[in-house]
Computed example of a mutant assay.
Amino acid sequence: MGTILLLISLLCVAVGTWKLIGIYKTGKADSKPVWWTVASAGIVLFFLLKLMTDTFPT
């Protein structure tokens, strides 16, 4: 379960950051909030996973 959460969080951060860089380079303001949310969700998932592994070691 931890590996899946880690991969999902890394994917969210990578895709969100990639899209945000593209949006800022082109100067469009189409979907900034969506990609900020995706990147932020990836960061939150990562810290949630870290908190879960520190609290409940296997």
Rank of each mutant, 00 (worst) to 15 (best):
M1Q: 09
G2C: 06
G2P: 05
T3M: 14
T3A: 13
T3D: 15
T3Q: 14
T3I: 12
T3R: 12
I4S: 15
I4W: 14
I4Q: 15
L5Y: 14
L6P: 01
L6F: 14
L6G: 09
L6E: 15
L6H: 13
S9G: 15
S9M: 10
L10N: 13
L11N: 03
C12N: 12
C12A: 12
V15G: 01
V15T: 11
G16T: 08
G16K: 02
G16N: 05
T17M: 08
T17R: 04
T17G: 04
W18K: 06
L20I: 09
L20S: 11
L20V: 03
L20K: 08
L20W: 09
I21E: 10
I21V: 12
I23D: 05
Y24K: 07
Y24A: 08
Y24M: 06
K25R: 15
K25G: 05
K25Q: 13
K25F: 06
T26H: 10
G27H: 12
K28Y: 01
K28P: 00
K28E: 09
A29M: 03
A29N: 11
D30E: 13
D30Q: 12
D30R: 10
K32W: 03
K32E: 06
P33D: 05
V34P: 00
V34D: 04
V34I: 06
W35G: 01
W35S: 01
W35I: 02
W35D: 02
W35V: 00
W35L: 04
W35Y: 13
T37V: 03
T37K: 05
T37R: 03
T37I: 02
V38T: 12
A39W: 08
A39Y: 01
S40P: 01
S40Y: 02
A41F: 10
A41C: 11
G42H: 12
G42R: 09
G42K: 10
G42S: 12
V44K: 08
V44F: 11
V44A: 15
V44W: 10
V44D: 08
V44R: 10
L45I: 11
L45K: 01
F46W: 15
F46K: 05
F47P: 04
L48A: 11
L49Y: 14
L49W: 13
K50E: 05
L51H: 04
L51I: 00
T53Y: 06
T53G: 00
D54Q: 06
D54G: 05
D54V: 01
D54L: 09
T55C: 05
F56Q: 11
P57Y: 06
T58S: 12
